[in-house]
């Protein structure tokens, strides 16, 4: 994660009380709306598909220059606000820990993945291949490439949900577990 200030970290990111969850309801609503914009812009700018909620030592949740950090309750409130606005969702199996932030909608990622795999040829892949960042990865050149396993899993799940793909093989017993051996077939 970049240590340099970014344009997504706007003026209020330097305002100390921005990092204290405001006790007054209306102010908190406004504060969380500012946080939502900041998080989505930050993730877009840094090309972060998922954001760990426990990383509170640097941007976006902490500003070391002013010695302020949003505490766990505050980060959770921001996450809940993002989810309620449809701008994020928990990573499957990591609820409360990692957040997929939709600076592009999930449908876009699913479309991209499906389009790319079809144009690359082939219709059956393993999750290991789709998550791979190797030079010969079938997703190389796709917009998803290099954005992390969380996003690939979410995109595959979306394709499955919308009837455009089916998964088979040894699925992990817990969501988010080792799914390298899972097969994905485009329909």
């Amino acid at each position: 994660m970049a240590e340099n200030p970014t344009t997504a970290l706007t003026a209020h990111w330097r305002l100390p009380p921005f990092f204290t969850l405001q006790p007054v309801a209306t102010t908190r609503v406004e504060q969380l709306a500012l946080w939502r914009t900041l998080i989505v812009d930050f993730c877009r700018e840094q090309r972060l598909a998922s954001l760990p909620l426990d990383a509170a030592s640097g941007p976006p949740f902490a500003n070391t220059a002013i010695s302020r950090a949003l505490d766990a309750a505050g980060r959770r409130a921001v996450a809940d606000a993002l989810i309620a606005a449809g701008e994020a969702q928990w990573v499957a199996g990591a609820a409360g820990e990692r957040l997929l932030v939709w600076w592009r909608p999930l449908a876009h990622w699913a479309d991209e993945l499906s389009r790319h795999l079809r144009s690359a040829g082939g219709s059956v892949f393993t999750m290991a291949e789709l998550k791979s960042t190797d030079a010969d990865s079938p997703v190389r050149g796709c917009e998803l490439y290099g954005l992390g396993a969380d996003l690939v899993r979410a995109a595959v799940a979306e394709l499955e949900r919308t009837g455009r793909a089916a998964t088979f093989g040894s699925k992990p017993s817990v969501a988010g577990g080792d799914d390298d051996e899972v097969g994905v077939k485009l329909l």
Binding site: L15, P16, P17, F18, F19, T20, Q22, P23, V24, T26, T27, E30, Q31, S67, R68, A69
Partner: peptide, 13 residues
């Protein structure tokens, strides 16, 4: 002033 949103509280001072 807090209620009106003119003041924001910071507890990490």
């Amino acid at each position: 002033l807090l209620r009106e949103g003119v003041l924001w509280v910071d507890v990490q001072g």
